Amino acid sequence: MPDLLRSLLSICNVLLLSVGLLACSVNPEREEQGGELGAAESTLALSHAADRLLVTPPSAVNWQPFALPGKRHVAFEPVFVLEREALRVKADNSVSILRRRFEPILIKPGRLNFSWKVDALPAGAELADGEASDSPVGIVLGFEGDRGRWSPRMHRLSEVSRLLTGEELPYATLMYVWGNREALGTVVVNPRTDRIRKLVLDSGTQKTGVWRDHERDVRADFRLAFGEEPGPLRVVALMTDTDNTQSRLTAWYGPLTLSSMTD
Score class of each variant (00 low, 15 high):
Lys198Asp: 07
Gln33Cys: 08
Thr205Leu: 08
Ala49Pro: 12
Pro255His: 11
Leu46Cys: 09
Arg149Leu: 12
Leu224Lys: 10
Ala123Leu: 15
Asn62Gln: 14
Glu31Val: 14
His48Ile: 14
Ser151His: 07
Arg234Asn: 14
Ala220Glu: 14
Lys108Pro: 04
Leu68Trp: 08
Ala120Ser: 15
Gly204Phe: 06
Gly185His: 07
Leu106Gln: 02
Val210Lys: 14
Thr245Ile: 09
Ala172Tyr: 06
Ala125Cys: 08
Trp150His: 03
Arg223Cys: 12
Ser158Gly: 00
Val235Phe: 13
His155Asn: 02
Asn13Asp: 15
Glu83Ser: 03
Arg248Leu: 06
Glu168Trp: 05
Leu54Trp: 00
Phe222Asn: 06
Leu164Asp: 06
Gly166Asn: 07
Leu164Met: 12
Met175Trp: 00
Ser158Pro: 02
Leu21Phe: 10
Asp146Ala: 11
Ser25Ile: 01
Val187Pro: 00
Arg99Asn: 08
Arg101Pro: 01
Arg99Gln: 07
Arg216Glu: 09
Gly35Phe: 08
Gln206Gly: 05
Glu77His: 11
Pro122Lys: 09
Asp243Val: 09
Val200Phe: 04
Asp213Lys: 13
Ala86Val: 07
Val74Thr: 06
Asp194Arg: 03
Ser18Arg: 05
Gly145Lys: 03
Gly70Phe: 04
Asn244Lys: 15
Ser260His: 10
Ala237Met: 06
Glu182Ile: 05
Leu106Ser: 02
Ser18Ile: 04
Ser260Trp: 06
Ala251His: 06
Pro109Ala: 08
Pro170Ile: 01
Leu249Met: 14
Gly166Leu: 02
Trp63Thr: 07
Glu126Cys: 09
Arg84Ile: 04
Val74Pro: 00
Trp211Asp: 02
Lys71Tyr: 14
Lys108Trp: 02
Cys12Glu: 13
Pro136Phe: 00
Arg162Gln: 10
Glu83Asp: 15
Met175Thr: 00
Thr205His: 06
Ser247His: 11
Trp150Arg: 00
Ser18Cys: 15
Glu85Cys: 01
Ser133Ile: 12
Pro65Ser: 06
Leu184Pro: 09
Glu182Thr: 02
Glu168Gly: 07
Ala86Gln: 00
Arg100Pro: 01
Gly35His: 08
Arg72Thr: 10
Ser135Gln: 07
Ser94Met: 02
Ala125Trp: 13
Thr193His: 10
Arg72Trp: 06
Arg197Leu: 01
Leu224Cys: 09
Ala45Arg: 11
Phe66His: 08
Gln246Leu: 13
Met175Cys: 04
Gly254Thr: 09
Trp150Glu: 01
Gly148Gln: 12
Val160Gln: 08
Cys24Gly: 15
Val79Tyr: 08
Thr56Leu: 11
Pro170Gln: 07
Ala172Phe: 01
Ala132His: 15
Arg212Ile: 12
Ala183Ile: 01
His48Leu: 15
